[in-house]
Amino acid sequence: MRRVLLLLSILLLLMASCELYYEEPVQRGTVRIVSIGITYENEPEEVAYPEDEEKDQLGDLPGTVFDARELSDALKQQAMRAGWNSADIEVTLLLQEREDYSEATVNDTGYASRANLKSTLEIIQGTTTEDDLTIITYSGHGIEETGELLMAHTLTEGAIDLSLPPSDPESIIVTPEWLYDLIRPIKGKKLLILDSCYSGVFVPESPSSLSWVYDKGIDDWYGKYFSDEEYEIPSFVVLTASADSDSYERKFDDHSHGVFTSALLEALGWNHTTLRIADGAPPSARNGLLSVDSLYKYIKKHQVYPVRWSIFTMDKPIQHPMISGGAMDMLLFSY
């Protein structure tokens, strides 16, 4: 009888757990961080919207470059805190800032163009092993309703034409399919973090999750999670700032950040004054483990804008982060 009670207690404990963890990370291999930040301050002329003359410009996003720089630093410092040597951490920054659109600027390898993103990820494809962790962050515009990302233009004159299809080499649009074709061949664990409007569109279907922001209904979601299919451990997880709505920026004393990125930096223990992480495990870690799910839960609880509407939050915008991966979590660092 005691044995039966013990087994029942263990079963109840397991059922009470809210997620299934990925295998514990081994502090070996290489951590690669690719951070993209685009302010859209260098338009040579007004943006061309042939079908909508009221949308004549890309709005400036002053916090995006700060997002990219500080997130890459915070993630690198957390990797070192978790046991990686600095020589085994590679950081690539793809940035567009200030108003310059000279040929030297737009052709620089560190410029946030679609071509540079493609070449960066192709290089990573050829060098990764199954022990590696690749984290890609993007802070910039997402197209309203459709969610595609907008990279920096490479024009030295003329107007930016957003009507060009993604298949056009001159297009600055990044679709989920285009980006995933570059990320999925990368060996090891991959985490994509997007701070942009309507970025929930990038949350993919997987053997352990089902994206239903636009095309799927609650019945599909319910059927997925209560089917007889086995969950698969994810090697690619997407964490986004918003589901099917705008994302926003917030102002600090001397710089701005995305609301989502601000909460993510806080989750990583980042100090905006010292530009260092705090001592010990980050605030979002649980039992000395930092996972994508623990970051997500911290962001939802601590971001300055509410994740859902209520009568107490009618004066604030709503911004609901999303995550893929389903019941299977991905561990990043242990301390």
Rank of each mutant, 00 (worst) to 15 (best):
K187F: 01
Q96F: 07
S206Q: 06
L289C: 05
S242C: 13
G140V: 02
D60Y: 04
S294A: 15
E99R: 14
H320Q: 13
H302K: 11
L295D: 07
L58T: 05
F66R: 05
T261F: 15
I173V: 14
G142M: 06
H320F: 06
H141N: 02
D293V: 04
S199R: 02
T156Y: 12
V292I: 14
E99Q: 13
Y214A: 06
L264M: 14
Y138V: 13
G326A: 03
P185A: 02
C18L: 11
V34K: 07
D132F: 04
L5P: 02
P166H: 11
F226E: 04
G269Q: 08
T109P: 15
E41R: 10
L239W: 02
T273M: 09
L7Q: 13
E45D: 09
I233H: 10
Y101G: 15
V34E: 00
Q96L: 07
T274F: 01
R32G: 05
N85T: 15
Y198E: 09
S227T: 12
Y111V: 12
E148D: 08
K118Y: 15
A16Q: 05
G280H: 04
I123F: 06
S86Q: 15
W221N: 03
L150A: 09
S247R: 00
L14P: 07
L121A: 04
N42R: 10
V26I: 11
D131R: 01
V259C: 03
P283W: 00
M80R: 11
K316P: 02
T156I: 10
E99G: 06
E23F: 13
W84F: 07
S284V: 03
L275F: 12
S139L: 03
K251H: 06
I89W: 09
E148L: 11
N42M: 10
M322H: 02
L191G: 07
G223Y: 05
N287F: 12
V174F: 08
A87M: 10
Y296R: 07
S245E: 14
L7Y: 13
I36M: 12
I311Q: 06
L5A: 15
G37W: 00
S17F: 12
E23N: 08
G280E: 14
G126E: 12
Y298V: 03
P25V: 08
I10G: 06
T30G: 01
S86D: 13
L5D: 13
M80K: 05
Y222F: 14
I218G: 08
I186Y: 05
V213A: 03
L290D: 09
D52H: 05
V203N: 11
R308V: 09
L162M: 07
Y111L: 12
H153I: 02
M80N: 00
I173P: 02
